[in-house]
Design a protein around this nucleic acid. Structure first.
Length: 276
DNA sequence: GTCTATGTTTGCGG
DNA sequence: TCCGCAAACATAGA
């Protein structure tokens, strides 16, 4: 669910809602394992009184920077959401961590599948250090991407999903980027021509930026879908060309989209546009 | 009721 | 290094 554009959308929402400068007055922990590295009482004690100086994203992590030099890293995994709610609203059973702010609002970590994690640390590099480059940053150039791909004898799709290779892509945006670049997900990275490297580089940045511009992708209409911190659905689903469009027409050539499995992940391709 | 699939990541064994 | 698989969990849909 939450990939780079969705995580960025949440961060944008939190900033827009004026959280920077706010203080965390107290915290409640309702599912211990959501806290990666601390016992609940330690977590609560350490986060109480922290002043938020910045909120940002790295890969699929939401990061709160505190004046004290500590950082809160939040990973939503499959089903996590960060919701901004009034202090008075009743706690949903899937809200596992609640941060009470010094106004009347809460930041609540809602996570039905409980895979998500929050880590409060003064040394975020132990978690963020191994991550690959940010695909939308200025220093992620075609030349750098070329170098990265040249040495990898791995299939494109699992490679692009590998956060230590490149940060932020998930199943949806990888399928979309590969379609846009007309590349087969099983193609071996090191065998790409320089033209294809360029196409892929552009396609990745393109689909991610489009996702952010549309405030993320929400599929279906169920409760289990992506919503931002202010509970808004994303509008990017209409821009998906292949993902979950099995048996529908390829927007480029009208061929029926096929669903295959690559690295245990469902994968959508146009068999005509994306030859191996 | 039962079975299957699910957008992520990590850790294991080969 | 790389790959395949299982696990962490809960829910929706067939």
């Amino acid at each position: 669910m939450p990939e780079l554009p969705e995580v960025q959308t949440v961060v944008n929402d939190l900033i827009h809602a004026g959280l920077i400068g706010n203080t965390i007055r107290d915290a409640g922990v309702f599912w211990n394992k959501t806290i990666g590295n601390l016992y609940p009482n330690e977590f609560t004690a350490k986060i109480t009184g922290q002043i938020i100086t910045n909120i940002r994203r790295r890969a699929k992590y939401i990061i709160f920077d505190f004046e004290s030099g500590m950082h809160l890293l939040i990973h939503l995994r499959m089903s996590g959401r960060l919701q901004l709610l009034p202090n008075s609203s009743r706690r949903d059973k899937h809200e596992h961590i609640i941060l009470h702010l010094n106004d009347d609002r809460d930041v609540r970590f809602h996570d039905t599948r409980k895979f998500g994690r929050m880590t409060l640390t003064d040394n975020p590099s132990t978690i963020l250090g191994k991550l690959g480059p940010e695909p939308l940053s200025d220093d992620f150039t075609i030349t750098q991407f070329q170098k990265m791909l040249k040495t990898k004898n791995r299939q494109l799709k699992p490679l692009l999903l590998d956060q230590n290779f490149l940060a932020g892509l998930g199943n949806i945006y990888v399928d979309e980027a590969l379609w846009k670049a007309r590349l087969h997900p099983l193609k071996i990275a090191s065998t790409l021509s320089s033209g294809k490297v360029k196409d892929l580089h552009q396609a990745i940045r393109n689909v991610l930026q489009q996702g952010i511009d549309n405030q993320g992708t929400s599929l279906g209409d169920g409760m289990s879908n992506f919503v931002s911190a202010e509970r808004q659905r994303g509008n990017n689903a209409e821009n998906l060309m292949v993902f979950r469009r099995t048996d529908k027409a390829c927007p480029r050539c009208n061929t029926k989209i096929k669903r295959i499995v690559v690295g245990q992940r469902s994968t959508h391709i146009c068999p005509k546009c994306q030859k191996y």
